[in-house]
Design a protein around this nucleic acid. Sequence first.
RNA 1: GGCCCCAUCGUCUAACGGUUAGGACGCAAGGUUUUCAUUCUUGAAAUCGGGGUUCGAUUCCCCGUGGGGUCACCA
Length: 485
Amino acid sequence: MSNKVVTRFAPSPTGFLHIGGVRTALFAYLWAKKNGGQFILRIEDTDKKREVAGSIEQIMRSLSWLGISWEYGPDKPSPDFGSCLQSERLATYKSYAERLVEKGLAYPDTRSAEELDALRDKAQAEGRPFLVREHRPKEFETWDGQSTLRFKVSELKRYTWHDVVRGQLSAGEEALDDFIIMKADGFPTYNFAHIIDDLEMGVTHIFRTDEFISSTPKFLSLYEALEIKHPIFTTLPPIMGPDGKKKLSKRDGAKDTLDYAKDGYLPSALCNFLALIGWNPGGEQELFFTEDELASVFSLEKIQRSGGAFNEEKLRWMNSEHLKQLGREAQTAYVTKGLPDSVTTAPQYSDERLARAVPVIIERIHNLVELRELFAAGEFDWLFKEPSYDPELLKWKNDDSVHAAKSRLQHVLGLLETTDFSSPEAVKNALWGYAEEIGRGEVLWPLRVALSGKERSPDPFMCAYILGPEETQKRVATACAKIAG
RNA sequence: GGCCCCAUCGUCUAACGGUUAGGACGCAAGGUUUUCAUUCUUGAAAUCGGGGUUCGAUUCCCCGUGGGGUCACCA
């Protein structure tokens, strides 16, 4: 046995992977990565009824998109411990179960669910807690290897244990009972299977949210019965909904992780954001653009105890920061991906012009949803289509009439003939002197309107640069013509 | 209800028992700019309440209060 850190993420395949699950996976992954250890993706598919077809693939795609990669997973069994799907590990659970039976620490329970419900109802009616251990048979029958198997809790005591995040935790014997470890359908329960698997897979650190604190005494009694050491417990705070009250759940609108991909969130931004719910780097830096950066500063000591709300506003901001960080090519690919068809089929569309426009687009959006909205609202119609606008729009606020703009535009037209269009700055250099001389607004407002047809748009030099010399001259000429007289 | 966990601006959070309680998102007001966006500056905004311990509590202890979790042949 080496000292290598081994962590795992162990979702059940009951649907898409939501943000809460991803955060747990991310922490486990970062810890393994930081320590040069292994991260395992284990699928806890022990409840056939709840299983949703396709969700294993969905989970794998979600994690892959985020850049969370696994050493072993459902698609990659281990040479040492075998499959990462619990449904393929039934023999292992059975052999451990038999060991417990032999030791007299587990017994078959053939009572029906109805019988147990009746007992439970009775206890409830009498106002006392229902404990199976109070109805434990005097003598255990032999286990046929198929019927329900119950763990016999051997020692009723108060358990105290250490949690990396929470410190000393404890719970009394009321938390202990004879719980089921093997179900009538031959599958193990979570309570049993995860312990066996963590042992078999050499898991050193368990990351899970605090809903598991109250069942930890159960696990501890089982670790004792199996005479094994338990992994290090790392309890994560829950992610709360935007109201900060209740836990974020699918029912409360927790989205499929892949929806964030569709909405144009970058994996690095989502990881960055999720890492900061329930953990902080200590200093004042909160932007981490790569997983390596994140992993290198990640620490268990800085994991938070209290729940954190999911603040979508901050995620939007963080995404825009990550977008700005992207190289020009990546930004272009990003924008291209979000473009509606109506744009690429516009009369003047060209990849070159789009590439030149990318910075002004990136500057105005936080995600692809906003990009689509801006384009749908016609914000960028001028890019690939001659703008149509009311000539009155060309009138600068200090002018009495739009006619004042005509001669200025004509002068600009002259300047444009010898203008260097290699960069927005070059265009600016060519026109700035004239604008300074006549008045900035007097020249630049009508010019910008001539190019974009809009009251609000990027500055005229940028517009001209994007449109190119020919189109720029054409639009300025058109504007001149629009002004009567 | 029993048991368990948690508690700093609206939100995410920082602060060896000693700070004007800091930063970020968002919000507001200004600056830069022909407009929008970007950007810059500034501002408003918090230690849940009550008791202790201490020269001194955001910090340690107790009690409240509030919130959350858990009590399955679900994970």
